[in-house]
Design a protein around this nucleic acid. Sequence first.
DNA 1: ATGAAAGCGCTAACAC
DNA 2: GTGTTAGCGCTTTCAT
Lengths: 342, 342
Amino acid sequence: MTKKISIVDIANTLNISKTTVSFILNGRAQEKRISEELVERVLKLVKEVGYKPNSLAKSLRTGKSNIIGLMVEDISNPFFASIARLIEDRAYEKGYRIIYCSTDNDTGKTQDLITMFRDRHVDGYIMAPPSNIDDDVRSLLKSGSPVVLFDRYLPEVETDYVVVDNQFSTYNATRHLIEQGYSKIAFITFSSQQSQMMDRVTGYKNAMKEAKLKTFIKEVDFNRNEELIIEPIHAYLKKNPTIDAVLFGTDHMGTCGLKVINQLGLKVPDDIAVVSFDDYDVFKLHSPPVTAIAQPIETIADNIITLLLKKLDNGNAQTMQKITLSTNLNIRNSSKQVVKAV
Amino acid sequence: MTKKISIVDIANTLNISKTTVSFILNGRAQEKRISEELVERVLKLVKEVGYKPNSLAKSLRTGKSNIIGLMVEDISNPFFASIARLIEDRAYEKGYRIIYCSTDNDTGKTQDLITMFRDRHVDGYIMAPPSNIDDDVRSLLKSGSPVVLFDRYLPEVETDYVVVDNQFSTYNATRHLIEQGYSKIAFITFSSQQSQMMDRVTGYKNAMKEAKLKTFIKEVDFNRNEELIIEPIHAYLKKNPTIDAVLFGTDHMGTCGLKVINQLGLKVPDDIAVVSFDDYDVFKLHSPPVTAIAQPIETIADNIITLLLKKLDNGNAQTMQKITLSTNLNIRNSSKQVVKAV
DNA sequence: ATGAAAGCGCTAACAC
DNA sequence: GTGTTAGCGCTTTCAT
């Protein structure tokens, strides 16, 4: 097999030193003024025997692994899966590989993960950080590793990040519902201290306050068991039958919410209007289609990887960039007041 | 930082040799009859200075990386994302990490990926193989690396794999449609030579043949641009207005298909009945809910990782296991003939 | 019971 | 222009 051939083997076969081979293989032949002819011979043999440099050894020596550590909340969530896919593609083009992990927003698990990534000498980190991870990120930064945050950021840590304008997004969505004539508007979301979630609540609150409306906020604890998310929403909606519209804080929340609304036999939008953060097939194909706050997934992924690759090239030298992108409110029939308020 | 400390540093500090430290760290103190007291001292210092072995160096020396290479068709597809998530969890518990890549069913890209994984000395491979990858998989096997295939297998290669009973699944789904009184039943799927797709077509064909019905098969080329999938379906359905039911070959196909049906303003199931392979929120939440062939995701993931871990433990010694799991046809309103045939 | 030393495959400073 | 050599940090055989 292509197994055991090392740089020494090919050097010996050609009766030259492995240094020369190494130089040639790393494109430094010109610089070292190695004869065209030797270069050819080496390249030919390399191809012939199918020699592949051992990247482990290379990494050990150079300290570079060409691996990027990607930490998302949950790879099975469509938002994160899509981002991961796009990042993977761009990184691949540039010769980087991705090791990913799902953090479940668990700080302890994330710390473990960071240790393991550091251990493996990953060259850079992309992370949707859980709360209370500030010190760990700082220490990463201090040791010279580039870190790009996304989806949320850590207000107390000076890093690059790519997020969307969460506060305006929910403010805007809430305004939309108000303009459509709804007044008992609930905001149902995950309980979380993360920046993006805080901002989303704030946007909702501001819009409601501005319109002098009473807020209805329901926070549900995150759980991987969907039943445990559906149940509290069910209870909440049942207990507050006057609610005439609901804004869901994430795609997952929105999906669970729709299930509840089905269970309760509520008509959308007549009984209850629906808007959700994130925009996926579930919302587009629903009857009626669900109004959704669409994040610019591709732009997000593009910015993340561009930022990281730049740092990787520049030896992490530059100043931090904080990128906030705007979302798009895709208005559909789930939030259009039918003319009945006449 | 926790950066530069190596085994030598801690050996020097304690005035002992690095060998001893290595033994202690690898739990061979007993075996080597190293004094309790020394062991304690070493462990204490290690903890104190936060020494972490360099896993790169370890891998170089031992040839083990504790990394598993996972190759899926597309990580942003919910089926693969869910599987990936479950595998990640189980592997993590056992101290293994996952490097993943999306193959896009592209043989060339997959070969690159394999080379890169092999390069990085991954300990094992999990793969949803594209076609024509037989030789590469064989060579992996020959070089002693455990490989577990899933979702599809390579008939010509003797490996472990975990798949579902695709042929029976579509046969059964088609039978269901026939029993409901549909007769112009189309099968819309990706054009592919992969085992799972071939089996799905066969199942459909067999059921139709058995019932003496004419088959309507539309194969669409895979493309990452959704528009290019939607368009041919649109054209096909428009050109064959007599079709009264359709079975979609994958979740992605089904989602695109529903979009087309919406565009065409067709009523489900009155104008057209719908059944899809794979069962996701999109189908459950659709109005009417869509009948779907549910794969046992957790069981699949569990079997895959159990198989691989066993091989990893046993030095890849055992015989191959071929596991075929059954699916579940979740019958919903999208395929229930409304009583009109009276 | 502990240590010296070889070596995994590679890079790069320094010779010649 | 090309070769010698010293590590990168670790494991493991063989001595003692």
